[in-house]
């Protein structure tokens, strides 16, 4: 009866939420991330002229007007931090989602097909995990987009830099998800009800969509949440090295790049963006661990 299955499913949901709320650190982390995202979004229209360059007021210490002081061009540091938060969080989320999609497709293909496709894909994943990512990303970020067939105007726009960063990070970040999805898919595909569905003539795509995907949503969410933190770290490193975003875009890594030269005069410029990255990544990891314990207790017990 569909009614009772639905009731069962919602009971399981309630149990998950209760398990999640039972972990104060994870809840705290989620609240922090929510508030950060909200503040970053609100900053754009509540900030007024805080982003204005004011050279007479450069490198000012903290004051009632500028809580964290101003940067080398006299812009409010807190406002810049929140704008940077927009970029870092958006790039982090978009890349993590992109990586999740790539990882799911590869994991499902490997788990469903098996045989030589499976071993090829998984050997490739192993190799990907072992490769030194940062040197590869440094080389990849130097690609001239006009030689890929994009027009010069598109290639030099600010959005192109953002999208390129997201694509690059997604292209290297899918490995954990692929392994998780493959393991979960194999587990589900071996179940009797899947075999029954297959015997009744269901094709592979229908089985993946109807039976496997619903079963891997939980581990997928956990893996994605955990990867957001790593992705934000990668983005900040690339931007710091001047390979990610346009110099004008305020991302946390980009802000640190400028701050390094001013370390002697204004250490605060280097302190706050770094703290923002660290706090966000710690919060993402805590939230991911919490989600793992709440949504997928069996797997997370096995892991720790």
């Amino acid at each position: 009866m569909p009614g009772s299955t639905l009731a069962l499913a919602s009971a399981e949901h309630r149990k998950r939420w209760r398990r999640l709320l039972g972990q104060p650190l994870a809840v705290l982390a989620l609240v922090f991330l929510g508030l950060l995202a909200l503040a970053a979004l609100l900053a754009s229209w509540a900030g007024g002229d805080s982003g204005q360059v004011d050279l007479f007021n450069a490198l000012a210490p903290s004051s009632p007007q500028h809580w964290l002081g101003t940067d080398e061009l006299g812009r409010d540091l807190l406002f810049r931090l929140l704008l940077g938060g927009q970029v870092s969080l958006a790039v982090g989320l978009a890349s993590a989602l992109g990586a999740a999609v790539i990882g799911t497709v590869i994991g499902l293909a490997a788990g469903e097909r098996g045989g030589w496709i499976d071993s090829l894909l998984m050997r490739g994943t192993d190799a990907m995990i072992a490769l030194p990512l940062l040197p590869i990303l440094i080389v990849l970020s130097a690609i001239d987009l006009t030689k890929l067939g994009f027009s010069a105007a598109v290639a030099q726009s600010e959005n192109a830099a953002l999208i390129r960063l997201v694509v690059l990070v997604a292209l290297v970040g899918w490995t954990t998800t692929a392994r998780l999805v493959r393991a979960a898919a194999r587990e589900t595909l071996a179940q009797d009800y899947v075999r029954a569905a297959r015997a009744m003539g269901a094709g592979p795509l229908r089985i993946l969509w109807r039976h496997v995907l619903p079963n891997i949503v939980a581990p997928l969410m956990v893996a994605t949440a955990l990867s957001v933190g790593q992705v934000i770290l990668l983005e900040s490193v690339l931007s710091f090295l001047g390979l990610g975003l346009d110099p004008g875009t305020a991302s946390w890594g980009r802000m640190l790049a400028g701050a390094q030269d001013l370390l002697w005069e204004a250490p605060g410029l280097a302190l706050y963006p770094g703290l923002a990255i660290a706090a966000t990544v710690i919060a993402c990891n805590l939230a991911g661990d919490g989600l793992a314990a709440a949504f997928d207790p069996r797997r997370s017990n096995r892991r720790s």
Binding site: V237, G253, L271
Partner: peptide, 16 residues
């Protein structure tokens, strides 16, 4: 967890 989450380049800047 902190070791996993700190940006390496920031740690370097702070220690410098």
């Amino acid at each position: 967890l902190i070791s996993l989450s700190l940006p390496t380049f920031w740690l370097a800047i702070v220690l410098i």
